[in-house]
Design a protein around this nucleic acid. Structure first.
Length: 304
RNA sequence: GGUGCCAUAGCUCAGUUGGUAGAGCAACGGACUGAAAAUCCGUGUGUCCCUAGUUCGAUUCUUGGUGGCACCA
């Protein structure tokens, strides 16, 4: 680590592992703000179901990217990259160490190494392609992609409609193959990044997940979800917890079944997170089952 | 007590005209560059309830058990 350089201490880990508590302890130690890297805590209408930190926790340190958007806003990882990087460089003027904390895998990677620059998609192109997909399925989209970008066509998962559709959107908007923009360059950030991963054994984690979800229900998750039920078609509401409760409101699920499904899908999500994080060799893993003081003293040995 | 039906993967069930078996869900693993809590992909050894018999060979047919369900007394 270079002397005198600014730090970004990034706390990652599966949902429910206990990131918030550690982040706040560190933030208090360094007198530093916290940047949330959680793609669902952005939305101000979603509080209980996305487990945003409590009011008390939020008062312990200045938080950014929490409740900063509405469910009606369009947002993506590239926008987050720009906003977060600008904010961090601003914060580094006052704080040598800034804390970041969250579990959204793509957003974490984008924060650390950036994303390729792609022109904004034309809205007309987007709706055209989507209605074609709705009408005729993925095949005609794949065929068009084959013509416009044979390179990407040969590597993309052709069954994953989101990838295929996006690639074609870029081709048709720009008139150039999507693979031209997709170079995968990793950006160097002008600060040290210290990645800390919190790990718990699955059974321990699953127990915490169950407790948290039961608590959410007790704290009024149903009311919160019912308020946004009319807008269920929004992407921001295609979210674990909300989507299962919507099916309960539809009469398709009983409440108990919906709650079981939320727990189950949260477990699955935690495994997907771990399968992403396992590949990242820069993460320093620690076990948060130890006492808070012990962990902080251990972390301070890692952080320059 | 009598009769009938059922017993196969963690669960719900297919199936094998006798050559040791497969779907859905669950579980687990993986991918991931502008919708990412999204989206997509991969993985099935299980005493085919037990016992005895027929057979080269039984999860499959027969006998007798055990358990469950239904109907009749």
């Amino acid at each position: 680590m270079k002397y005198g350089m600014n730090n970004l201490v990034l706390i990652v880990g599966a949902t429910c592992v206990g990131k918030t508590e550690i982040a706040i302890r560190l933030a208090k130690h360094f007198q530093s703000p916290i940047i949330s890297v959680d793609s669902r805590q952005f939305y101000k209408e979603l509080l209980i179901g996305t487990a945003v930190p409590s009011a008390t926790d939020l008062n312990q340190a200045k938080h950014y990217f929490v409740s900063n958007l509405s469910i009606f806003d369009y947002y993506n990882a590239s926008q987050f990259e720009q906003e977060a990087i600008d904010l961090i460089s601003h914060l580094h003027k006052k704080h040598q160490t800034v804390i970041a904390c969250g579990g959204s895998m793509l957003y974490i990677d984008v924060l650390c190494q950036g994303m390729d620059i792609i022109p904004a998609i034309d809205q007309l192109v987007r709706t055209d392609i989507f209605s074609l997909y709705k009408k005729e399925g993925i095949d005609p989209i794949c065929q068009q992609l084959k013509i416009h970008d044979p390179v990407y066509y040969s590597v993309v998962d052709l069954k994953n409609h989101k990838r295929v559709i996006h690639a074609l959107e870029v081709c048709l908007t720009t008139g150039k193959p999507y693979s031209m923009f997709r170079c995968g360059n990793k950006k160097k950030r002008p600060f040290n990044i210290i990645k800390i991963g919190l790990f718990r054994e699955p059974l321990d984690l699953y127990k915490r997940i169950n407790i948290r979800i039961d608590k959410m229900i007790k704290n009024g998750f149903l009311e919160e979800a019912y308020k946004v039920y009319p807008y269920r078609f929004l992407n921001s509401l295609n979210t674990i917890g909300y989507k299962e409760l919507f099916r309960f409101f539809d009469g398709e699920y009983t409440l108990n079944f919906a709650i079981e499904k939320i727990k189950q899908n949260t477990r699955i999500y935690s495994r997907k997170q771990m399968s992403w994080f396992r590949k990242d060799k820069k993460i320093n893993w620690i076990y948060p089952s130890n006492s808070g003081e012990f962990i902080i003293s251990k972390l301070l040995r890692i952080i320059p």
